[in-house]
């Protein structure tokens, strides 16, 4: 159940972003999760309410964009869809491959509601 660590990682990122943007609350958060990233979505859904309770993410809509696995065969140099780590290249049956997609584990974006009288953001370039 490392999904709790994942969820708490998401809360940390949201906290920081919320602080920087001086947002009042987060309306929605978009996560990008690869199918080979080792995250069980059902487990993440299960721990989510407990992880976000009392945080900036409480009540925020959770949008998950799943990414399919994709590999580059290092034998025949062709790309192929990868459902499992142990799949062979369908072209040459080789197992030497580089995973080029499907390992994503990112907070992609967030939508905020800003307070009615926003304090001007401190001037810093980022």
């Amino acid at each position: 159940m490392h999904e709790m660590s994942i969820a708490l990682g998401i809360v940390n990122i949201a906290n920081k972003a919320c602080e920087e943007a001086q947002a009042a609350r987060i309306d929605s958060i978009t996560l990008e999760i690869g199918k080979l990233a080792g995250v069980q979505l059902e487990s993440l859904y299960f721990v989510w309410p407990a992880a976000v309770e009392g945080t900036v993410l409480a009540g925020a809509e959770r949008i998950i964009e799943e990414r399919e696995g994709q590999a580059l065969c290092l034998e025949c140099d062709r790309e192929f869809a990868l459902q499992h780590h142990f799949d062979a290249c369908p072209h040459c049956q080789g197992y030497f491959k580089k995973i080029i997609a499907g390992k994503e584990l990112n907070v992609k974006s967030m939508a905020f509601t800003l307070p009615d009288n926003p304090v001007p953001a401190p001037s810093k370039t980022r």
Binding site: S5, N12, I13, K108, M110, A111, F112
Partner: peptide, 12 residues
Amino acid sequence: MELEQNILHHNQ
């Protein structure tokens, strides 16, 4: 707001 931040960034 675009973030593109790895969730395990802190651990990393």
